[in-house]
Write a protein that binds this DNA or RNA. Structure first.
Length: 476
RNA sequence: UCCUCAGUAGCUCAGCUGGUUAGAGCACAUGACUGUUAAUCAUGGGGUCGCAGGUUCGAGCCCUGCCUGAGGAGCCA
């Protein structure tokens, strides 16, 4: 007889059939009731042990964390908390778990503490829910794009290009750091390094995705990216995953339409496929927020927030309009903003939060930013001041998507690169896309962990990736 | 990187104005009970008060530096 997964056991008729189940003990109550979890579902299966039939020696080895093989009969539960239960005929200990040394208990732990034991935290209902949803979202992203005929492109992880200026980069080298080869003038001799030049971990696959879009029309990347920024916030990681679609023959509106459709698809996918997990996480958030003052609590419970997000069109406004709204706001007139609102500034977190959480109270897409605060590759508008950029701001998360229509006109692109001190020589391959059959195109980047944060209601980004990498933390 | 707060038992925390032998709940151990739902009841063990200096007759508490964590800001996805 083969093992039955707990997710399957719970769908079977409870008609005395004999089954084998395996899993880890969550709790062992009353010397009789084992809550067994095998990770196939966040639900536990109740195992009933008649303590008169088993040796005390065996029962004493059953603790939270112990792994078991149970053979027994499936019956309707006589207790109230569950539908099924298994009456154990045999109980085999697969792996003992020392109760004094095992850090997980059958009670709530703080997320900070669980972060320190990331190798074990997946054994909790919270992290099982989060990572199950993370898995589902990764799958749904491929499904969304594949259904539309997009080609999945593997952009390189190691790159020599630091042109995007998306932040500090991690150097990749095979040099012995205590004895780095130098040139006669005393500089590091990168021509002696593995690749013969200085190389880094990628900060974005966008430029490579653009190359592919010039062949396949519609492509996307989905892979890890790296930023060596010393950012210590609940929204930043040094290693995170990004989805970067790039579409030929798309303008900025097409780009926004696709991004909005994708986000709604992914949120709906979560609601449709992970109801148990979402309900659990919603309750967790409610319990957690009970200790907070009213004004710091979420305005909507998780499920309602996600449904609201699917059902309403995202607000679309230009940067110029956004500045106008901010300037006219009573908030601004009462001088409640710390930073001055003025055309030309980069929107501060407080400004974004005002627009998303106070003014519109739903996702907002801001377009046509001043060119000075955006990247060199964004398409310049006729006004000479703004570019075809778009950022999607989500409540509680901030910027979840950043994108633009790209500058396809080579003269304007070269001029902009010169102004921003970007080497046309190093970037010859990028410029050749504009030289050889250039077309209008657009794309965006979606921060995968920020999406998972939004869909799970987790406040800290370190709790939505199995093994987070952040400044001063590379454990496990 | 900057600002603010925190670090006391395995976990979550209390510890008053500097004053005897540092407490609670949970966890754990032992016993009781046995249809429980974070089971319950009784008893018990468990501490270099983040680290290093300093002030003081005396420091968990005051001062300085460092480390770690959290929240906010910047940068961004």
């Amino acid at each position: 007889m083969k093992r039955t997964k707990i997710c399957d056991v719970l769908t079977l008729p409870s008609n005395q059939q004999e089954l084998i189940v395996m899993g880890w003990v969550r709790t062992f109550r009353n010397n009789q009731f084992i809550a067994l979890n095998d990770g196939s579902t966040i639900q536990n299966l109740q195992i009933v042990v008649d303590f008169n039939r088993f040796s005390e020696e065996l029962l004493k080895k059953i603790h939270t964390g112990t792994s078991l093989k149970i053979v027994g009969k499936l019956i309707p539960s006589q207790g109230k908390g569950q539908t099924h239960e298994i009456i154990a005929n045999t109980v085999e200990i697969l792996g003992e778990c020392h109760p004094e040394q095992y850090p997980l208990q059958a009670k709530k732990h703080s997320l900070e503490f669980l972060r320190e034991i990331a190798h074990l935290r997946m054994r909790t209902s919270t992290f099982q829910s989060v990572f199950r949803i993370r898995n589902g979202l990764a799958y749904a992203i491929h499904q969304f794009f594949q259904n539309k005929g997009f080609i999945y492109i593997h952009s390189p992880v190691i790159t020599a290009s630091d042109a995007e200026g998306a932040g500090e980069m991690f150097q990749v080298t095979t040099f012995n750091l205590s004895n780095v080869p130098k040139t006669n003038s005393g500089k590091v001799s990168f021509s002696d390094d593995f690749f013969g030049k200085s190389t880094y971990l990628t900060v974005s696959g966008q430029l490579e995705a653009e190359l592919a879009a010039m062949a396949f029309s519609n492509v996307y990347t989905f892979g890890p990216t790296f930023r060596a920024e010393n950012s210590n916030t609940p929204r930043h990681l040094a290693e995170f995953w990004m989805i970067e679609p790039e579409m030929a023959f798309y303008d900025l509106t097409d780009n926004m339409d696709l991004a909005e459709e994708m986000l709604k698809y992914l949120i709906k996918y979560t609601l449709d496929n992970y109801p148990d997990e979402i309900r659990f996480l919603e309750q967790r958030q409610i319990d957690e927020e009970k200790q907070k003052p009213q004004n710091e609590r979420s305005t909507m419970p998780l499920i309602e927030k996600l449904q609201f997000c699917i059902q309403n069109p995202f607000e679309r406004i230009t940067y110029t309009k956004a500045i106008e709204i901010l300037e006219k706001s009573t908030y601004n007139q009462k001088k409640k903003f710390q930073f001055l609102v003025k055309w030309g500034i980069d929107l501060q977190t407080e400004h974004e939060r005002y627009l998303v959480e106070k003014e519109f109270n739903k996702p907002v897409i801001i377009t046509d930013y001043p060119k000075e605060i955006k990247a060199f590759y964004m398409r310049q508008n006729e006004d000479g001041k703004t570019v075809k950029a778009m950022d999607i701001l989500f409540p509680g998360i901030g910027e979840i998507v950043g994108g633009s229509q790209r500058e396809e006109r080579i003269e304007l692109l070269e001029k902009r690169m010169k102004e921003m001190n970007i080497s046309a020589n190093d970037m010859y391959w990028y410029l050749e896309t504009r030289r050889f059959g250039t077309v209008p195109h657009a794309g965006f980047g979606l921060g995968f962990e920020r999406l998972v944060q939004f869909c799970t209601g987790m406040n800290n980004i370190r709790d939505v990736i199995p093994f987070p990498r952040s400044p001063k933390n590379c454990e496990f």
